[in-house]
């Protein structure tokens, strides 16, 4: 009868790679910056559209079709931003409703 010897434990698991803090892949930005930039762009387009309409009604040398296209682009980007905002709010509310 052999004496009970200790059970050898396998050596503790060593991480195969050194641990790094989570870093951004090259070229990406924080999501907040992306959102703010997009809001700024929508605002710029709205201002441009307003200016184009003002120029047209005060007799400026601008093409009516161009003015209409600018207006529609501004409209569309505003609605897109509104939809994105709605989805974000919805996602936030869903997360809030998660029962721990």
């Amino acid at each position: 009868m052999t004496p009970i010897t200790g059970i050898p434990l396998s050596p503790p698991v060593q991480p195969s790679l050194p641990v790094q803090p989570a870093s951004h892949p090259v070229g990406a930005q924080p999501f907040k910056n992306v959102l703010l930039e997009a809001l700024g762009q929508v605002n710029t387009m709205q201002t441009q559209a307003n200016e184009a309409v003002q120029q047209l009604v005060t007799g400026g040398d601008v093409n009516p079709a161009e003015v209409l296209t600018t207006l529609q682009k501004a409209d569309m980007s505003f609605r897109m931003m509104l939809q994105i905002r709605n989805k974000l709010v919805q996602a936030y509310q869903e997360i809030n409703n998660i029962r721990i």
Binding site: P64, A65, L68, T69, L71, Q72, D75
Partner: peptide, 10 residues
């Protein structure tokens, strides 16, 4: 043409 171009705004 001028009238139709108003359809850009849908």
């Amino acid at each position: 043409m001028a009238q139709q171009s108003l359809r850009i705004l849908g």
